[in-house]
Computed example of a mutant assay.
Amino acid sequence: MENCTDKQHHKHFAIYKPYGYLSQFINNGQKQNSKKLLGELYDFPEGTMAIGRLDEKSEGLLLLTTDGKMSNHICSSGNVEKEYYAQVNGDISMDAIELLKKGVEIGFEGKKYTTTPCKASKLNAIPKFPERSKKIRDDRHGPTSWVSITLKEGKFRQVRKMTSAVGFPTLRLVRIRVGGTYLDEMKAGEVRELHTL
């Protein structure tokens, strides 16, 4: 994706964005003055931007780059898979998984939107992630389950809206993959410099 001259100038990073952080470097308004920002986690070079976003309550893999063309390609091509693990309220049914795969109707920018077909499956084992700073309710309040959802689109809070639409609201959301880059066993807040994206 890069030519030789780009490799010498641009930097790319993978970060495990922790719960409670915004996917940005500066505050855009008075309400956000107390919010935690990515720049608090690492001394990124000037001009570094997040490729896409994870909302404040979501965690996991966030790619960053100093290459605006690369960021635009990943965000707008519609060909780059993004895989999420979602802990949902309740023991998700196979019927709900099938609905997720086919596409569900969600609200987006004040209108109804039907998501494009995607990959979805129930996880047989609980994934191992760092403990979240804000506790999730435990199973004494009813069962929870984990689902993998892989999208090529990324509407605002899409995975959360999708699981709610099939009756299993998301309690915890962790992005584990963007294209061929994986979260692996990174710790919350950890930053790795990548040689390529």
Score class of each variant (00 low, 15 high):
Val88Thr: 03
Ala50Trp: 10
Val159His: 08
Val104Pro: 06
Leu61Ile: 01
Ser164Gly: 04
Gly179Ser: 02
Thr150Tyr: 02
Gly107Cys: 08
Asn79Ser: 12
Ile126Leu: 12
Leu63Pro: 15
Lys155His: 14
Ser164Gln: 14
Val159Ser: 08
Ser145Ile: 07
Leu173Pro: 14
Thr116Asn: 15
Lys152Met: 11
Val88Ala: 04
Met70Phe: 14
Gly167Arg: 05
Met49Glu: 15
Ser164Pro: 06
Phe129Met: 08
Arg157Met: 02
Ile106Ala: 05
Asp138Val: 06
Leu54Gly: 14
Thr66Ile: 03
His73Gln: 10
Lys112Leu: 04
Tyr113Met: 05
Arg137Thr: 05
Gly52Ala: 01
Ser133Lys: 15
Ser145Val: 13
Ala86Ser: 13
Ile106Gln: 06
Pro143Ile: 00
Leu151Met: 09
Phe108Pro: 03
Val80Gly: 06
Leu63Thr: 00
Lys57Asp: 15
Asp95Met: 06
Lys102Tyr: 10
Ser76Gln: 09
Arg53Cys: 01
Pro117Met: 07
Lys155Arg: 13
Ile106Arg: 13
Pro127Trp: 11
Lys155Val: 11
Asn79Met: 00
Glu83Ile: 01
Leu64Met: 09
Val104His: 00
Leu100Arg: 00
Ser164Trp: 11
Asn124Ile: 15
Ser77Gly: 02
Pro127Phe: 10
Gly68Asn: 03
Phe168Ala: 04
Gln87Asp: 01
Glu81Asp: 10
Lys57Glu: 15
Ser71Arg: 08
Lys82Tyr: 05
Ala125Arg: 12
Tyr113Cys: 09
Ser145Thr: 07
Gly68Cys: 07
Gly78Asp: 07
Asp95Ser: 13
Tyr113Leu: 13
Ile176Leu: 03
Ser76Asn: 10
Leu62Glu: 08
Leu173Gly: 12
Leu54Asn: 14
Ser93Gln: 05
Asn89Ala: 10
Ser76Tyr: 04
Lys119Ile: 08
Asn89Asp: 05
Ile176Lys: 13
Lys69Cys: 07
Lys134Thr: 09
Glu81Ser: 13
Arg140Met: 06
Gly110Met: 01
Leu54Glu: 10
His73Tyr: 15
